[in-house]
Design a protein around this nucleic acid. Structure first.
Length: 923
RNA sequence: GGGUGGUUAGCUCAGUUGGGAGAGCGACGGCCUUACAAGCCGUAGGUCACAGGUUCGACCCCUGUACCACCCA
């Protein structure tokens, strides 16, 4: 083995072996518990970002953990066609060639998208493999493959036939850049600085005017009423009168509606039913005329006075303001903070616009979806996310599922020349079913919202609408791993659609994780230039390439410079190659309960070092076991030492902790428990404790065999315990270790996951080694504080102490000598005077290191004084507690007793330290 | 405006029935001690956001306040 752990030397090779050997497939053992996770399908043409890395790592840990427990385990993988996102990318590619999709035409364009999918579609799955993810690649699906198309059609048609899908002319969120409707969820409302303009609207009868306030003056050209509160004393007498709408020169009514907030502005509201969702509602209530003043580009159309026709919306806005001002109708302009709706893909301001769209009637579907969570058939981890789910579900709006795109599942609906609608699987089917003969039919131009197809993911991937064996075996699935931002988009839709069509929940548990942010808590984004690529953390990247990567394709040069500077400052050496295992371990250590995680490169380095630690510990173990009897043949000819029994005991506790953590999705606690055990117990103590045994000729063969057996078997168990978290290094080492540990098998992936055996918990051995540690640390403290070279062997005198202390010393004498680097250990008789010494305490036992030539008086006095000060502070607190009669009376007896013991112990320690301080002072 | 989460060492974070505040990184001092300098040994550093309350006892439970983040309107 190399002296240093080199992740790139092992990772790729193992992955290939695993995949080729078919280890990722379900065992097919139907008598075992099924375990199934559906991957949230990433965008087929996307690339892996930190959020994916985090999410896939969590899923893979769960999958490997369950696979090792013998479950019939399926991780279903696949990609999403991602309608808008993918279409935008391809349109941008075309634009670079100076073409538009309209020039190409629909069929050619779609062909082009498929071509792009073929070119770039392997990217994300390749990256997934780099993470060590172990899904069943043989079952990979795509949301637009043939089987999925069938499922999507089936769902659409049945929902339509059941009256749950309808077509209607409604206000939608219109994206004027992408020329499509989008759902409420795809609209981001961000606060922006704008203005509030106050206009005077003259009453038709010339008796005065009303003042209305608006943030969107151009919409006044489409006003069809002014509303006031029906009980507003200022205005209620005006209800029923009319306004002469300026510029448009139309008469519009004044209406009363209690939606109006009397406190806001003047208490009068202009109503534009065709361009505002609230106004639309009011328009419905009052049967107001709807005047659409915008075209698909959000330019003004022919419904407005000639002057404004064809104007861009924001140009029209200032023109309207200017013109009203010129007419003396602008009362005032105020700065105003408002929420501006923007498309999450295009970034442009969304316009409420009146169009024909397809909708899913969600209320009936939501009822079951709510119930399933209420009665615990589905539970959220952490559970507070169910509130988010409930609040949205209970106030759900109908879902606009049609998109005016070309890339996606085309809506299976046809119109005859009279506009009559037919829904069916194909034109032929529709013709036949409705006896249409040869009349002309045209298919609906729209495609379905991407989330409509991903909503079928859990059962669509398993073969539905066929009644497959996979559906029986794996549905409902076990757990869904996802970010909270996707709860509405995806989780909610899967719940509704799956419950409706499968009559069962899509999954039992939803594990919700947070967002991956940078080390300062900022969202990672291209424009901030703080994006980390998981692959760069695995393979490393030099500074110039990183700068190049972060600043390429930047529109704004000033951002470019800033990002370059900041990158050079943060990564002066570029990024080192930390390897997949270290990256994954970092994710796990940060994955506490559903909160956002800040990714700090310092952490990943620490875990790379941890990998190196395991690597080198293994080297040591192998060096000392290869070619020796390690009990691998099942012989009984060995004897377990105190240290052996201790580390085995600690191992049981660790196994228990890790399993509990994994079972409760506390990957942070699992990784922490493992890290502590491996580094702080196994490496720092047990390996050191094994040396005096293996290197001492006087130790019996049986004890040496016991130690070797324990070294190798504990290591082998550690590897299995860690495998779900760090798959590569554990496999690499396990292959070298398995035979010596008396086990066999082709891969660690399919070995049983360690389980604690309570019978092997040995409290006696634990207490003995705890004693050894305290004494060792006492001596080390003196050595460290007194700057005594580690190479210098020193004599140790012991005084006081109990019979138990003496027994423990005899049990551990050689271990202590080695660990504390001692020249000799001498037990002083009670009457015997000690030479001038530095002192440390281990309970009742005094540890004395003679000062001659090693320790100077001043330093030792200072050290003792420090100890005394610390102890006195503690003592004062405990004494205060015990002096309080209320505490003594009311606290449970065992707590009081414990405090009393503590007090006595500290008093005794203090008096001995005092005595020692005086003795040192007299020198 | 409604809701959720957060505030613990310089930084990133643990702390699960209320009973002596922890880890990693960083800092400081000492070491190439035959697995590992990506290491070893030692040390320092915290009024657990603030104010009340409950309790013999509060990082933990309750109330309120401040600030941060996110979701919804």
């Amino acid at each position: 083995m190399d002296k240093t752990y080199q992740p790139n030397a092992i990772e790729q090779q193992w992955y290939q072996t695993w995949e080729e050997s078919g280890y990722f497939k379900p065992s097919g053992d139907t008598s075992a518990d099924p375990y199934c996770i559906m991957i949230p399908p990433p965008n087929v043409t996307g690339s892996l970002h930190m959020g994916h890395g985090f999410q896939e790592s969590i899923m893979d840990a769960l999958i490997r953990y369950h696979r090792m427990q013998g479950d019939n385990t399926l991780w279903q993988v696949g990609t999403d066609h991602a309608g808008i996102a993918t279409q935008m990318v391809v349109e941008r590619l075309l634009a670079a060639e100076g073409k538009s999709r309209h020039e190409l035409g629909r069929d050619k364009f779609i062909e082009r998208v498929w071509q792009w999918k073929e070119e770039s579609g392997g990217n994300i799955t390749r990256q997934l493999r780099r993470l060590g993810a172990s899904p069943d690649w043989s079952r990979e699906r795509f949301t637009m493959d043939d089987g999925f198309y069938k499922a999507v059609q089936e769902v659409f048609i049945r929902l339509y036939e059941d009256g749950l899908i309808y077509r209607g002319k409604r206000l939608v969120n219109w994206d004027p850049k992408l020329h499509t409707a989008i759902s409420d969820l795809e609209v981001l409302n961000e606060e922006e600085q704008g203005h509030l303009w106050h206009f005077r609207y003259p009453l038709s009868d010339g008796s005065g005017h009303l003042v209305v306030a608006t943030t969107r003056p151009e919409t006044m050209l489409g006003d069809t009423a002014v509303a006031v509160h029906p009980e507003d004393e200022r205005y209620k007498h005006l209800i029923g009168k009319t306004i002469k709408l300026p510029l448009a020169e139309r008469e519009i009514p004044i209406i009363g509606d209690d939606y109006v907030d009397r406190e806001f502005g003047s208490g009068c509201v202009k109503i534009t039913p065709a361009h505002d969702f609230n106004d639309y509602e009011m328009g419905q209530r009052h049967s107001l005329e709807m005047i659409n003043i915008l075209d698909a580009d959000a330019n003004l159309n022919d419904e407005v006075p000639e002057k404004y026709r064809g104007m861009e919306r924001f140009a029209a806005r200032s023109q309207v303001v200017d013109d009203l001002d010129a007419l003396g109708l602008l009362e005032k302009t105020e700065p105003h903070t408002l929420k501006v709706p923007r498309g999450d893909r295009s970034g442009v301001v969304i316009e409420p616009w009146l169009t024909d769209q397809w909708y899913v009637k969600t209320r009936p579907l939501a009822e079951d979806a709510i119930k399933a969570v209420e009665d615990g058939r589905v539970n959220f981890v952490p559970d507070n996310y169910q509130n988010m789910y409930f609040s949205w579900m209970r106030d759900i709006q109908d879902w606009c599922i049609s998109r005016q795109l070309w890339w996606g599942h085309r809506i299976p609906a046809w119109y005859d020349t009279d506009g009559k609608l037919y829904v069916g699987r194909s034109e032929e089917e529709v013709r036949e079913k409705h006896n249409l003969g040869g009349i002309e039919l045209t298919q609906d131009e729209d495609v379905l919202d991407t989330w409509f197809s991903s909503g079928l993911w859990t059962f669509g991937t398993l073969g539905w609408p066929e009644d497959t064996a996979e559906l029986k075996a794996f549905h409902p699935t076990s757990v869904l791993v996802t970010g909270f931002d996707i709860i509405f988009f995806w989780v909610a839709r899967m719940m509704m659609l799956t419950l409706y069509f499968k009559k069962e929940v899509p999954f039992h548990t939803v594990y919700v994780h947070g967002l991956v942010r940078d080390s300062h808590g900022q969202k990672m984004s291209k424009s901030k230039g703080n994006v980390l690529d998981p692959i760069d953390l695995i393979d490393g990247i030099d500074l110039e390439s990183l700068v190049q990567k972060r600043t390429s394709g930047m529109m704004q040069p000033h951002l470019r410079d800033k990002i370059e500077k900041q990158t050079r400052k943060e990564f002066p050496e570029g990024i080192a190659a930390y390897g997949t295992d270290a990256l994954r371990y970092t994710y796990y250590s940060l994955a506490s309960t559903g909160r956002d995680i800040r990714f700090d490169v310092g952490r990943i380095e620490g875990f790379r070092n941890f990998c190196n630690k395991i690597w080198n510990a293994s080297r040591y173990v192998l060096q000392n076991c290869e070619g020796y009897d390690c009990g691998q043949d099942g012989g009984e000819d060995f004897e377990l030492s105190l240290a052996d029994r201790w580390i085995i005991s600690q191992l049981q506790r660790t196994e228990k902790t890790v399993r509990e953590a994994m079972d409760t999705y506390r990957f942070d606690l699992a990784s922490q428990a493992l890290y502590d055990f491996v580094w702080a117990e196994y490496c720092s103590w047990y390996l050191e404790l094994s040396k005096p045994v293996l290197w001492d000729e006087n130790v019996s063969q049986a004890v040496k065999t016991g130690t070797r057996r324990t070294l190798i078997r504990v290591l082998e168990t550690i590897l299995r315990l860690a495998h779900p978290l760090m798959p590569f290094i554990t496999e690499e080492i396990w292959q070298r270790v398995k035979a010596l540990a008396g086990t066999s098998g082709d891969t660690i992936m399919l070995q049983p996951y360690p389980e604690a055996d309570e019978r092997r918990i040995d409290t006696g051995a634990e207490a003995a080694i705890a004693w050894l540690k305290v004494v060792t640390e006492g001596v080390r403290n003196i050595r460290g504080e007194m700057n005594i070279s580690p190479a210098k062997k020193i004599p140790l005198l012991l005084r006081g102490g109990s019979e138990e202390d003496r027994e423990r010393l005899e049990a551990c004498r050689s271990l202590l000598t080695k660990l504390a680097s001692l020249e000799s250990i001498t037990w002083l008789d009670s009457g015997e005077t000690a030479p001038a010494s530095a002192t440390a305490l281990a309970g009742d036992l005094e540890l004395l290191v003679p000062m001659a030539g090693l320790i100077d008086v001043a330093a030792e006095s200072a050290r003792l004084q420090k100890e005394i000060d610390k102890l006195e502070k503690e003592l004062a607190r405990v004494r205060g507690k015990l002096d309080n009669p209320k505490f003594v009376d009311k606290a449970p007896a065992h707590v009081v007793a414990k405090e009393k013991d503590k007090l006595a112990e500290m008093q005794s320690a203090l008096s001995r330290l005092d005595k020692q301080l005086r003795a040192v002072g007299e020198l």
